[in-house]
Design a binder for these strands. Structure first.
Lengths: 130, 130
DNA sequence: TCCTTTGTCTCAACACATCAATACAATGAG
DNA sequence: CTCATTGTATTGATGTGTTGAGACAAAGGA
């Protein structure tokens, strides 16, 4: 479990943990059944409050990526095959926000799609991390 | 100048004004050369503080959509033809944020693009307003 | 049974963005 | 020259989200 948290980043620490774990689960780095570190342990490693890690785990549970099994800890689940429908309203909101931002700057659909393609490419590039 | 501001909305009032004026400028409802209402006048109409309108105008000026001509007021400029390059880092950031959100939920590029297409369609639909 | 270890909950402090009010500077009409 | 009208700058209040610390409940092993 190599995680990094930058307290001065724009995205809050709990969201950074959430995103990194989610990526590792989806990419298979953390296979289903893996036991995540306890919130206190991880909090200690990262030098943050336990509550912050707890929140990240809570959000991950809402996403259906992990399950907390009481006394035994928190475990990785098999991620459901993703579809636009299942990704839910949160993804739709993100898409709408992006569409508004793009339209607002005068871009048409094709230009907006190109920007997303570029962003995706840039996203895949530095995945040497994790 | 028919503008609406919902103080309880998620997007802050200054951003609502900014977005609505930007849309009207880009769509030609407000042709170049049009004089915008003074910040005090518009603030009065909307029942908000002058400073809030001032901020919206300031952001619009940064976008290059309007120009303030000192004593004479604030005027609509001819919007530059939009390109992805010119839309600048703000658009790139929005695209990256969206790409991360989508990847984070396990969507691939095509699914993410579909969601944007849907959002764009939904955006064009209720443009009976403005 | 007792105690350790797990996640959960609650509450206060803090940081940050936004808004409102007010004072200010510029500038052109009269 | 005077002054009304324009946008600008500063300051304080407010609300929201995030963090941190600690108390709490559950549950299995010794």
């Amino acid at each position: 479990m190599i995680l990094r948290v930058d307290p001065s980043a724009a995205t809050p620490p709990y969201a950074q943990i959430q995103a990194q774990v989610a990526t590792m689960v989806r990419s298979g780095v953390l296979p289903p059944g893996t036991r995540l570190p306890t919130i206190r342990h991880l909090a200690n490693d990262l030098g943050i409050a336990a509550n912050t890690v707890a929140r990240a785990y809570r959000e991950l549970e809402l996403e259906g990526l992990v399950a907390t099994r009481g006394r035994h800890g928190t475990f990785v689940l098999a991620p459901a095959p993703a579809t636009v429908e299942v990704a839910g309203p949160a993804l739709a909101d993100a898409a709408t926000a992006y569409a508004m931002e793009a339209a607002h700057r005068g871009l048409d659909l094709d230009q907006a799609l190109d920007a997303v393609r570029s962003a995706f490419r840039a996203l895949d590039e530095p995945r040497r991390l994790a």
